[in-house]
């Protein structure tokens, strides 16, 4: 997994609540067996018209937001399905962090496992960031994971919460499968002392 330490970049605002994973990447694009190539279809039904042309009023299509690496989104981002294609599509497009007031549980887990940082802020801060990015799209902010802070252009810093283990893994690029594999002795010990609850190969 790619490490995430600090990021200084511009923001693209999507002030919509409850953006579900069907909007992030519609189901018809899930027939792939790869993780790559999903970025072009990020937000496909909002981003393109029926003929496949970019809609000029959608923020991701606007020239002033090209190259933004931070997405600002309304409350409860990533609700709905468990598809990890959602973070893959966001990363494929070039995003590295999402700022919202709340993230759906499965989406947050999936994002963290792919080096995409979910940053939770309060409503007032989010509104302020929306204003900053709208008034001056060139505004860059800095997200520092080690200190768990967001620094605004005027030097003000805000802190954000993150689960300690997820932070450790992101900072060091540790992949959680490796961490789990190290627990094999404990897993074997658990299996020895617990009844086998299911055997799918042998109907009773």
């Amino acid at each position: 997994m790619p490490a995430f330490t600090t990021l200084t970049g511009t923001m693209v605002p999507l002030p919509i609540e409850n953006i579900d994973t069907d909007q992030i990447i519609p189901a018809r694009f899930l027939k792939t067996t790869d993780k790559t190539g999903l970025g072009n279809n990020l937000f496909a039904d909002w981003r393109y018209d029926d003929d496949g042309n970019p809609r000029p009023d959608f923020p991701l299509n606007q020239p002033q937001y090209q190259g933004a690496q931070i997405l600002l989104a309304g409350d409860n981002f990533g609700c709905g399905s468990s598809r990890e294609h959602a973070p893959w599509a966001l990363i494929g497009y070039g995003l590295r962090a999402i700022i919202s007031t709340r993230f759906a549980d499965i989406f947050r887990n999936n994002a963290l496992k792919n080096g995409l940082l979910p940053v939770t802020v309060d409503q007032a801060t989010l509104q302020q960031l929306f204003s900053l990015s709208t008034e001056d799209p060139a505004t860059a902010i800095t997200i520092d994971l080690a200190s768990q802070t967001v620094t605004l252009p005027d030097g003000r810093t805000l802190s954000f919460p993150i689960d300690g283990f997820a932070r450790y893994c992101l900072l060091n690029g540790v992949d959680q499968l490796g961490y789990l594999m190290q627990q094999m002795p404990q897993i074997e010990a658990y299996e020895r002392t617990h009844p086998d609850r299911v055997n799918t190969l042998q109907p009773q």
Partner: peptide, 22 residues
């Protein structure tokens, strides 16, 4: 509960998941 594809790999490989208590 539902999991993402990275976690599918975790369970396939170890039969376990890392979880914080809800």
């Amino acid at each position: 509960f539902g999991i993402g594809t990275s976690e599918v790999a975790h369970v396939l490989a170890t039969q376990c998941l890392l979880q914080s208590r809800p």
